[in-house]
Structure formats: C-alpha cells, structure tokens
Simulated scan of single mutants.
Amino acid sequence: MKISANLSMLFTELPMVERVVAASAAGFDGVEIQFPYEVPAIRMKEALEAAGLPLRLINLPAGDLMTGGWGLAAVPARQAEFDQALDDALSYAAMVRPVLVNVLPGRLADGVTRECALQTLVANLRKTADAFALLGIAVVCEAVNTTDMPGFLINSSEQLDELLGMVNHANCSAQFDFYHMAMQGEEISAGLERLKGRVGHAQFADCPGRGAPGSGSLDFVNALKALKSSGYSGWIGAEYKPGEQGTLASLGWMDEMRRVLS
C-alpha cells in the first residue's frame, strides 16, 4: 500500500507546483490535490513529470462548498453549474491524468428534501462515472463529518453505503477518510467492514484536530490493520494539518505506517 501527500494541506508554505517536488523529496509515493484548477493543467502535468510522481486524486469543482455553501452535486437548482464543473474537470483530467476523481456530495440545500437531494446526487454520480470511465479514471464519493461541515448530506459509512447502492455503477466507489469517520464517532473497523470491497481510496488525519498521526487520540495501528483486513490494497492519502512545525517536521509517522501497511 502506497502513501500520497495531499498538497492542499501539506507543504502549504510553497507554491502548488513546488509542493510536488517537496513531496517527492520527503518520500511520498504520489500526490493528491483537492482543487488544482488554479494551476494550468499543462503546468501541473510538467511538475508531476519532473518530480516523477503520479497524481492519485483530484476533486470535482464544488462551487461554494468550501466557503460554507451547499456545493453543487446534490442541489437541483444548480444542475447547470454541476454540468460545467464536470466539463471543467474532464478537460483538466485529460491533461494531468489523475487515477481518481472525488465528487463531494455537499450540504442539504434549503428548501430541498433529502430524498430529492439524494436523487440529484445519484444522477450526477452516474453521469460523472460514465464520463470519466471514457478516460479510464475512476470516481469516488466520500462522507464528511458534520462538525466541520454542518448539514453535509453524506456523513457516515452507513449513508455512504446506501448511496453507493443507489448509484450502482462499476466506476463509482467510496473514499474512506479515517478522520471524518472518527469525528462522527464511528469505529473505523466497522465502517470499513460495511464498505468492504467498495473503497476506492483512503485518507487519514488524527482526531480531534485533524493533525498528523500522534497528535490526537485515533488508534492508527488498529485502523490501518482494519484497512488491510478489509481487503483494501490501494493508496492512502495524508490529508492533515501539520501545524506550526511544518510538514517535514510532522512526518515522524511515515516509517511506522509503512511497517504496519507492509
């Protein structure tokens, strides 16, 4: 199992393209970026090739989600915006070739029933999975805790399991984030067992605080063993806040994690 650096949260003291080189020098196997779109795709492609690292994952553009809004994927009134986001992501991905694209469900919008929001999300996930299958790129969708993002539509492994069943698409699977599930009070092992065979990507940060492993109370050894026991053999992304110590000083977890995952 290989480890990727989420460059939206790590090495943030550097410009984005320089973070790719920094991740390579620090020993990561690849990188992922939440929203890379401010960097021209050709420039990002060149940076990845120069560093010799694969791009594991990017997110589909999510509108106003990261600034407190509803996002795009589950809001019927924002269908045109979602379709444009999908087109933009397809164009970008055709150049930078991520292995995965993550679609964030977003928050339940005012005046929209949960049933209607889910129907919209399911249709958009199917549309996205179809479109990216033509590029050989897989699609994932994740649950996000409601402390950090109040009102998030999909916030537990149970809801994610239900969603994947509704989507029922070979090119759509789960992104499982240790931090978000721990913040929801879920047992990591139980969530992984529920989603067994349908996890396309995993991510981690300690809980609470979303810091590096060892900064909180999450039992990483048992969580990683549960990940292996579930049959998952993909990559795991470091998506945490290194704090004032900086990214390089926060990487004391890496050797132990590789030992557990080997």
Results as ranks from 00 to 15, higher is better:
Ala249Gly: 04
Arg198Glu: 09
Gly234Pro: 03
Lys228Thr: 08
His180Lys: 04
Pro150Glu: 09
Asp219Pro: 09
Ser215Phe: 08
Met181Ala: 15
Asn155Phe: 13
Pro150Phe: 08
Ser217Arg: 01
Asn168Ser: 15
Glu187Ser: 13
Leu164Asn: 01
Leu135Pro: 09
Glu187Asn: 15
Ser229His: 08
Phe176Asp: 11
Pro208Trp: 09
Ser189Gly: 14
Glu244Thr: 10
Ala138Asp: 05
Lys228Arg: 08
Thr147Lys: 14
Gly209Trp: 01
Gly165Ser: 06
Val167Gly: 03
Asp148Ser: 15
Asn145Ala: 07
Trp235Asn: 14
Leu164Asp: 13
Trp253Asn: 13
Ile236Glu: 03
Leu218Pro: 06
Ala174His: 11
His180Pro: 02
Leu251Ile: 03
Phe176Lys: 01
Gly211Gln: 09
Ala143Pro: 05
Asn222Val: 07
Leu218Met: 04
Leu163Pro: 05
Glu256Trp: 06
Asp177Phe: 08
Asp219Val: 07
Ile188Met: 02
Asp219Tyr: 07
Ala190Val: 12
Lys196Phe: 10
Lys196Tyr: 06
Leu227Tyr: 05
Asn155Lys: 12
Leu192Ala: 11
Leu218Arg: 01
Ile154Arg: 01
Val139Pro: 07
Ser215Ile: 06
Lys241Met: 14
Leu248Thr: 12
Phe176Pro: 12
Lys225His: 13
Ile188Asn: 05
Trp253Glu: 07
Gly214Ala: 03
Leu224Thr: 11
Leu163Lys: 05
Gly216Asn: 01
Gly191Asp: 15
